[in-house]
């Protein structure tokens, strides 16, 4: 199931698609990120693990330019996000798909309108038929073609997550950012979402950062795992490497998820 990551081997030079360099972020007196650094390489899925309130979501909001870091560098696809003007940021965002924790579907629009929304505004040259084909393609990719005329309120939590992912895929992004993709879902639906994240990586050739505190999600979807603790990455490596660690904080995380 695991896709072949293009992470460079030692001595091999490859440009990361996302490069965070000593990122600091505080909200008032609450310091959330204290010098976070991370590289994401083409075709790679990196899972950021951490407890609630450790700044995981803040991290991907900084990457997508929704939040500004207090200091540090954020380079995405070669562009320094903090230096971009509105237009440049908008162009960059066409290449980034952001899947929200609660899906953030536009509840006044049908599934079809939700999916067409970014297309109509960003690919104005497309004909109605081409738009419809794009909608069908991403709905097929997430396995929900039958929901095209339904409204978000008529969908289950898992279906909403899938449609949220489909809406990001419609612009054919190079990078996917998943914010708690399995939060609030039952184990079977969570497994389906985890498999979908892997399918997206392989089928659409994306690189992804997956924010989660669900270790099953981390194990299934991640090529690499990084644990965010006290505002910086505490451990980083493959799932097995990270959880071979005897540190009690790492063990506590593992035990809570797998031994209850």
């Amino acid at each position: 199931m695991k896709a072949a990551s293009q992470r460079p081997l030692p001595g091999q030079a490859a440009q990361p698609v996302i490069a965070l360099h000593h990122v600091h972020k505080a909200f008032g007196e609450n310091v959330v990120l204290r010098g976070v650094s991370l590289d994401l390489f083409p075709g790679e899925n990196v899972v950021v693990l951490g407890r609630s309130g450790t700044g995981k979501s803040v991290l991907i909001k900084i990457i997508s330019g929704m939040l500004q870091p207090d200091s540090g560098g954020v380079r995405v696809l070669g562009d320094e996000v903090t230096m971009l003007n509105d237009k440049q940021l908008q162009q960059l965002r066409l290449k980034i798909g952001f899947s929200f924790q609660h899906s953030a579907l536009y509840d006044s629009m049908s599934v079809k309108e939700n999916l067409e929304f970014p297309l109509v505004r960003n690919k104005r040259h497309l004909t109605r038929r081409e738009r419809r084909m794009a909608v069908d393609r991403v709905l097929d990719a997430v396995g929900l073609s039958q929901t095209i005329h339904q409204y978000p309120s008529e969908l289950s939590g898992g279906q909403r997550k899938r449609i949220g992912i489909a809406r990001t895929l419609i612009l054919q992004p190079e990078i996917m950012l998943y914010d708690e993709p399995t939060a609030g879902l039952d184990p079977i639906t969570s497994t389906e979402i985890n498999n979908l994240i892997r399918e997206v990586q392989q089928r659409f050739n994306t690189s992804a950062i997956i924010i989660t505190h669900d270790l099953t999600c981390a194990k299934t979807t991640g090529d690499r795992v990084a644990i965010l603790l006290d505002g910086h990455f505490f451990r980083e490596g493959s799932f097995e490497e990270v959880f071979a660690d005897r540190d009690e904080r790492v063990r506590a995380f593992y035990d809570y998820n797998f031994t209850g």
């Binding site: 000593h22 008032g28 991370l38 590289d39 560098g73 990084a226």
Partner: peptide
Amino acid sequence: MDSEQSFPQPESKPPGRE
């Protein structure tokens, strides 16, 4: 964990309440 690149630094702002 970070690559060997030069980063233009945004204006740094000390954390904490002003």
